[in-house]
């Protein structure tokens, strides 16, 4: 009986948190997009002094970079140096 009540509460909590989880995920993703924009700012003509250091991140963010340029409306990788697709 007690376990059933617990399942019910967990279910209810999930119903409540569904739209919220989505909103948080969206805000986090927007933040990530901004971060990536800062990293690759030279691409759009804003000089970036840490450009060369960011290259070290290359292996870690290749996949994320791919998702990001798709979200930003660019079908192919905009940088010749990064060949994700």
């Amino acid at each position: 009986m007690l376990s059933k009540v617990k399942t019910l509460i967990a279910f209810y909590e999930e119903v409540l948190s569904m739209p919220h989880r989505q909103e948080i995920a969206r805000e986090l993703r927007d933040e990530d997009d901004l971060f990536l924009l800062l990293l690759y700012s030279e691409m759009i003509g804003i000089p970036n002094p840490v450009y060369y250091y960011t290259l070290e991140l290359y292996p870690y963010m290749l996949e994320k970079f791919h998702d990001w340029h798709l979200r930003m409306g660019m079908e192919k990788s905009p940088m010749t140096g990064i060949r994700c697709c």
């Binding site: 279910f11 999930e14 119903v15 569904m18 739209p19 989505q22 995920a25 969206r26 993703r29």
Partner: peptide
């Protein structure tokens, strides 16, 4: 699936959200 808009959700949870 992107874990933001497209998230596979249990049907009871989805019904609860849809109904409310």
């Amino acid at each position: 699936k992107d874990d933001v808009d497209f998230v596979p959700t249990n049907k009871f949870v989805l019904w609860g959200h849809h109904f409310t």
